[in-house]
């Protein structure tokens, strides 16, 4: 296992989303990769600036929905045709139109469950503690402040240089954050 850096990273605090976006883009262009922005509400441009990444969630939801639908239909087929066939008004055992409604519902259920739990899993949540919470005034990240962190594990990270780099964007504050 690689040696853990002395500190978690350096974090700059901004008051304006535009300044945060500028700094985030510059950090990415400067070659920093282990960067993360923290904002009180979703900002699409910032998400893209942090890492132009692919989002696997839609695929997970699609698979969840397909599994839900197949499982729902299979359950009905097995119970109504194989395990416990019942003659209801002379209709065929495999009366598929009647099976559509529960199949539809299980499809939605499978997709919705995978959307929520997939999102949480990809985000690594729940995670009660994270070093970023050691940042001074980080509780304002859920109110009106915007934070940009560069982690010490980044290849380009240098305690002094990175701090200077972040300070060049005139943030409100730059701080070193402990583990």
């Amino acid at each position: 296992m690689a040696k853990r850096p002395e500190i978690y990273g350096v974090v700059a605090e901004f008051e304006d989303p535009n300044e945060l976006l500028k700094a985030t883009r510059a950090a990415y262009e400067a070659g920093y990769r282990r960067i993360e922005a923290y904002t009180p509400y979703p900002i699409e441009e910032v998400s893209e600036a942090v890492s132009p990444h692919r989002n696997r969630l839609p695929l997970i939801v699609l698979i969840g929905g397909i599994i839900g639908g197949l499982a729902g239909y299979a359950l009905q087929y097995y119970t109504q045709v194989i395990d416990y066939p019942m003659n209801i008004g002379g209709r065929p055992f495999h009366s598929w139109p009647a099976f559509i409604v529960p199949t539809f519902e299980t499809t939605i259920l499978g997709a919705a469950l995978s959307a929520v739990f997939g999102m949480l899993a990809l985000n690594g949540l729940p995670r009660p503690h994270h070093p970023i919470f050691n940042t001074p005034r980080f509780e304002l990240a859920s109110r009106n402040r915007f934070f940009l962190s560069i982690e010490a594990s980044d290849k380009k990270f240098d305690r002094e240089q990175t701090k200077e780099f972040l300070a060049s964007f005139a943030p409100r504050d730059v701080s070193e954050v402990d583990w």
Binding site: A37, Y38, S47, A49, H53, N55, F133, F138, A141
Partner: peptide, 9 residues
């Protein structure tokens, strides 16, 4: 924690 990657997902 309001991380940009989290917000995106």
């Amino acid at each position: 924690r309001g991380s940009a990657r989290h917000w995106h997902r």
